[in-house]
Amino acid sequence: MARYLLSVFGPTDPPASGGSSSRSELLQEWADTGAFNDKLQREGHFVFADGLEPASTATTVDGRGERPVFTDGPYLETKEHLGGFWVIEAADLDEALALAAEGSRACRGAVEVRPFNTPESIQALLDS
């Protein structure tokens, strides 16, 4: 089993849920995502998952200097930001990609799949 981070990216400012159609769309999206989470749980892939508040609520902290520096806003100034993520376990990348495709459909966002370090990869890093 390998562990992967599935990150969901979306626009910096989430669409306001003003209209009734967008509200029902949002509810459907959450229902689909919830069902996908249930499936991950059921099939033993689920490690952790959650959604994030908008990137504008982030604070960037740099503690490398003598005194920590706090800056309002996300670390990267981009049009799209991390909106939520899953941590899953899968047999290999093929399985992780298939799950990511399902997750992407459920949450209506593009998903980045990235493997976590393993004890072997950390050892290889030390050896190199």
Partner: peptide, 15 residues
């Protein structure tokens, strides 16, 4: 291939 665990196998039937 190594880090992301790209498998070393022939894909299954439908894929």
């Amino acid at each position: 291939i190594r880090a992301a665990h790209i498998p070393y196998r022939v894909p299954s039937g439908q894929d």
